[in-house]
Nucleic acid binder design. Sequence first.
DNA 1: AATCCGGGGAA
DNA 2: TTCCCAGGATT
Length: 345
Amino acid sequence: MLMNKNTIEYLQNSLHNFYSSFARDLPWRKNKDPYSIWVSEIMLQQTQVKTVIPYFERFLKLLPDVSHLAKIDIESLMKLWEGLGYYSRVKHMHQAAKIIVNEYHGILPKTALELLKLPGIGLYTAGAIASIAYEERIAAVDGNVHRVLSRYLGLPITKEELLPLMDELLPSQSIGNFNQALMEVGSRICIPQSLPLCNECPINQKCQAFKKQLTDSLPIKPKKLNRTIEDKTLLIITDQTHYVIRKRPSKGLLANLWEFPLLEGSQTINEISAFLLDLGIDEFDLKVLPNSVHTFTHKDWKINAYKITTMKLNPVDHYTLVSRFDLNQIYTLSSLFKKYQEYYQ
DNA sequence: AATCCGGGGAA
DNA sequence: TTCCCAGGATT
C-alpha cells in the first residue's frame, strides 16, 4: 500500500515536535540504558504507566543491571513483582537475564531479531527496546499505536495488518522517539473510551477518523470474552503466631505464588472441619469473614472467607507454617488476599 | 486463530 | 458493569 507522502511527513514532523515539547518525564526515560528500558517494557505489558512507576523505581534500585537480575533467587524476584500481575513475565525475565549473561556477555542483544529470541520478548517489546535503546528503524506496535494509526489512516485494520504498513511510516531517524510519541498520543489524547481529545491532538489536521467522525468505530475491537464465576473458600488458619500457607501449582492461574488454603467451591462448615482434620486440627474457633469478589481478565472468584484459630499447628506435607513477618517479607501472595490483610496482621 | 494469564484505573 | 492497559506464551 502506497501512502500519501504528505500524510506521512506531516505525521512524522508533528509527532517529533509534540514529543520534543510534551513528552512526560518518566523514570525509564532518564537514559538509554537498554537494561532499564527492557525492565520498563516488560512491566508496562498490559499495565498502566502509573501502576508501573513505583515498581520500576524499586526494581532498578535493588537490581541495577542484568547480572544482578540473573543472580537473584526467583522467590525474592517474585516478591518484587507482588501485585503487578501476569507473573510469568518475571519468570521469563529471569530466564532471559541468565541467557544474556551466559550467551551475550551481559549485554542486551542490539537487534529486534535477536531480542525476539529471548523469553518474554515478543514482536512489540523487541521493537520497543531496539528502537528506543539502539535506534533501530523498527516498529513497536502496541494497543496505543494500533488505535492512533488506524484512526489517523481511517483504516479498520487489525494490529497484524498494520505491521506491514509501518515501514512506510517510520522516519529515517529518531525512531525511538517516533514510536514513543505514537504511544504517548495514544495513552493521553487518542484514548479508547468516551471521546478522544481530538482538539489537543498534534496530528488532528490529517486524521481521517477526526475528519469523518470515525473515532467511535475505529479501531476495530476484538470480540469480548465470556466471563465465568467460581466460588472459593478461603481459610486463614492461625495459632496466633503462625499461619498456614501453601504453594500454588507451577502452571495455571497465579502459578508458583503462595496462598492461604483456597478450596474449590463454597464449602460447608462440616466440609471445612473435615479439611482441618486432615491438617491435624480437631479443635478450633471459626469466625466468618466478609465475602469478596476478585476479578481476573476472564473469570471472577467469589471468596467465602473464614478465620480459623487453633491452639497448636502441626507441620503437614505441602503446607508451610510461617510467621507474620515472613509472610510480609518473603512469601509472594496474589493481591486478592490483600482484602483480608487485617485478619493476618 | 483462540485462549490463557493479574490487577487496577476510569467512565 | 465494561473497557483496556507500552503483550506474550501456549495450544
